[in-house]
Simulated assay, not measured.
Amino acid sequence: MSLEIKNLSGGYGKLTVLKDISFTIPDGTLTALVGLNGSGKSTTINHIIGLLNPKQGSITLNNLTLGENPIAYKAQLAYIPEQPIVYEELTLKEHLALTIAAYQLDEKVAWQRAEQLLKIFRLEDKLTWFPTHFSKGMRQKVMIVMAFITEAKLFIIDEPFLGLDVIAVNDLLTLIDSRKKEGTSFLLTTHVLNTIASHADQFVYLKDGQIAAEGPATDFSKLVPELNVNED
């Protein structure tokens, strides 16, 4: 089992956003965390990556908890936020080098993987560029490359398709499918499931900080008819 969340309640200060939620993400699967704005998706992510402490309940990643072993726990995670986070003073190449050092990756293997990813996302000729020259979509691609050069066991991807062109969306989904076959797990947040319906294994639908529905991705339209809409 990759990620196990048990009876999690939490939020910000005295404000409780999540109310006793529980779900698991098995190895080699993609779970879609679905919900409208304010439903608790970002709060759930912030608890998993350690930005917030649970008020109640537990979060376990491959038998490790953040409190017991924070370094080993975080080494298993790769996080791609909705808004790209980059360092304005570092080039693309320096961003990749920083990721390789932070995750203590084998440099030769990691750079080979980086070269492949840079080619896929058409960034191979931009290694000396600074983020000031990147569009939002390009910054998002930088975050994707940085995440996928790691050997993380769990990828958390927050609203990944905002700002990505159609080709990049398909490239990302292909990468996800490939890593799933290797046993990597994914938690991906979205407002609606249409874009990833054929790639997701299961969904968790949050509403007002509680799990309103969950199940196989194929049952989403039946279990959550209010979000069964077509995307442009």
Rank of each mutant, 00 (worst) to 15 (best):
I144S: 07
I71H: 15
P84F: 12
F161A: 10
L164K: 13
G137Q: 06
Y79P: 04
E68A: 15
E89S: 09
T91W: 06
E159F: 04
A97C: 03
P81M: 01
V169C: 11
K141Y: 01
K93Y: 04
I71Q: 14
K141C: 07
T65A: 10
D158C: 01
A75T: 09
N63G: 02
K180P: 02
L175F: 13
D106Q: 02
I120S: 08
N170Y: 05
G183W: 10
L172N: 09
H95I: 05
T91R: 03
A147M: 08
K180M: 05
F134L: 06
T91A: 14
I176G: 04
A114Y: 06
I85V: 09
Y79F: 10
G163S: 14
K136S: 00
E159N: 11
L105I: 06
D106S: 01
K141H: 07
A110L: 08
L64D: 04
D171F: 13
P131F: 02
H133R: 11
I80P: 05
T184M: 02
V145Q: 11
T128G: 03
L96G: 00
E115A: 04
T150W: 00
D177V: 01
W129N: 08
A97G: 07
V142F: 00
A152T: 06
L123Y: 15
N63H: 11
R122T: 13
K153P: 10
R179Q: 12
L118H: 11
N69P: 14
L98M: 02
L127A: 01
A110P: 12
Y73I: 13
I85L: 03
A78T: 05
T65Y: 13
K136L: 03
M146T: 12
L92P: 15
Q83V: 01
L92K: 11
V166I: 12
R179I: 01
F155D: 02
Q116Y: 12
E68D: 13
D158N: 03
D171K: 04
A97P: 08
L162F: 07
F155Y: 09
T132I: 04
E115Q: 14
Y87A: 00
D165E: 08
L61H: 07
L123M: 11
V169W: 12
G67K: 14
L77R: 14
A102M: 09
K119T: 05
D171C: 06
T174R: 05
P81C: 00
P70I: 09
M146Q: 11
T91K: 10
V86I: 10
P81N: 01
Q140A: 02
A72H: 13
Q140H: 09
V145L: 01
F130E: 11
A75G: 13
D106E: 14
T132M: 01
L96C: 04
A78S: 10
T174D: 06
V142G: 06
E94D: 07
I100M: 09
Q83Y: 10
D165Y: 12
F130W: 04
K126W: 04
K153N: 09
F161N: 12
Y103W: 12
I176A: 05
